[in-house]
């Protein structure tokens, strides 16, 4: 309603002037999101990590098991050629030298002391000289249960089944996961960033076998324009697990642009629609992660 757009419970909405949200406005936007898209839901998170300025049971939003079938590199070249009219989808140009470094330094309490190291091209600098095991090394250190697996599947695993009309004696023994196209999946969550006063998207990915993705693997699903400037790894505020997120430093600017567009069109900006705008923007950052968001934003 018009009244809601201008006042909120805290009485200090800065939505119109700067595109930011108060905690109450975030909750209202989250309620709209879960109402329209029930595949997103509110969760309470770790009891020790909850914020007092948000309701206990509404600490963050999450949607799980979202498929991501392709990597961005397949789209990159196609996208280079598209000049979008909706350029509010892309954040304003940020120079790679000054402003972006500030963007990454602001929030991180865990900033690595090695942060001043030389950049390695446009890809986010990921410390290459620590003990982190690459895929090959990792695989060789893990215990091998393949024989045991085979035995289990033979003795009482998931049998594949008979075709509907086949007689009982004819059972086709098929590997349980034959014919399934395996895919990466993501659990996506949206938290309220107290410092920037905007939503913040967190991406926890799994490979085709269900193992967690490395940050480098997650970056394969982020549009290259964004990787070097806005993608970080931080402890998730409600789970504590190190998780990739899209840094929120640009979000308010993007929202402000949309608000200005709405005003220009004679519409009254609504803060409770903020997460629909947010998700539309995010879909341009991670275009191959197919979460439920497609809708025209209706007033």
């Amino acid at each position: 309603s018009t009244v809601n757009a201008f006042t909120s419970a805290s009485g200090e909405s800065k939505f119109l002037e700067s595109g930011t949200l108060t905690p109450e406005e975030f909750v209202e936007a989250g309620d709209q999101l879960t109402f329209k898209f029930p595949t997103w839901r509110w969760e309470a998170g770790d009891a020790n990590l909850r914020a007092s300025y948000l309701p206990q049971e509404q600490q963050y939003l999450i949607t799980r098991n979202v498929p991501c079938r392709d990597r961005v590199r397949a789209l990159d070249s196609a996208l280079d050629q598209i000049k979008t009219e909706d350029d509010w989808l892309l954040p304003p140009e940020v120079s790679t030298s000054g402003a972006s470094k500030d963007c990454l330094q602001d929030v991180d309490d865990l900033a690595s002391p090695k942060e001043g190291k030389a950049e390695v091209g446009p890809v986010l600098n990921f410390n290459a000289d620590d003990d982190f095991l690459g895929d090959g090394a990792k695989a060789s250190n893990l215990p091998d249960f393949s024989d045991l697996d085979k035995q289990l599947q033979e003795e009482d695993g998931y049998p594949a089944a008979s075709a509907p009309a086949a007689p009982a004696s004819v059972i086709v023994a098929e590997a349980p996961d034959a014919n399934i196209l395996k895919t990466r999946t993501y659990d996506l969550s949206i938290t309220y960033d107290k410092y920037y006063r905007t939503p913040r998207l967190w991406l926890f990915g799994y490979n085709e076998n269900g193992d967690p993705l490395t940050p480098e693997e997650v970056y394969e699903d982020v549009l290259s324009d964004y990787k070097s400037r806005t993608v970080t790894v931080d402890p998730h505020p409600l789970t504590g697990t190190p998780t990739v997120s899209i840094h929120p430093c640009q979000h308010a600017q993007v929202m402000k642009k949309v608000i200005d567009d709405w005003i220009e069109q004679g519409l009254t900006p609504r803060h409770d629609l903020a997460l629909f705008v947010f998700l539309k923007f995010i879909s341009s950052v991670v275009p191959t992660i197919n979460y439920d968001f497609t809708m025209e934003i209706e007033f």
């Binding site: 900033a111 967690p212 190190p242």
Partner: peptide, 19 residues
């Protein structure tokens, strides 16, 4: 299934990898 969660649970690794 077997997962290696060093990157998530080893506190030294977690600090080193946070950028």
């Amino acid at each position: 299934a077997t997962v290696d969660l060093t990157r998530f649970l080893d506190s030294k690794m977690v600090a080193a990898n946070a950028v």
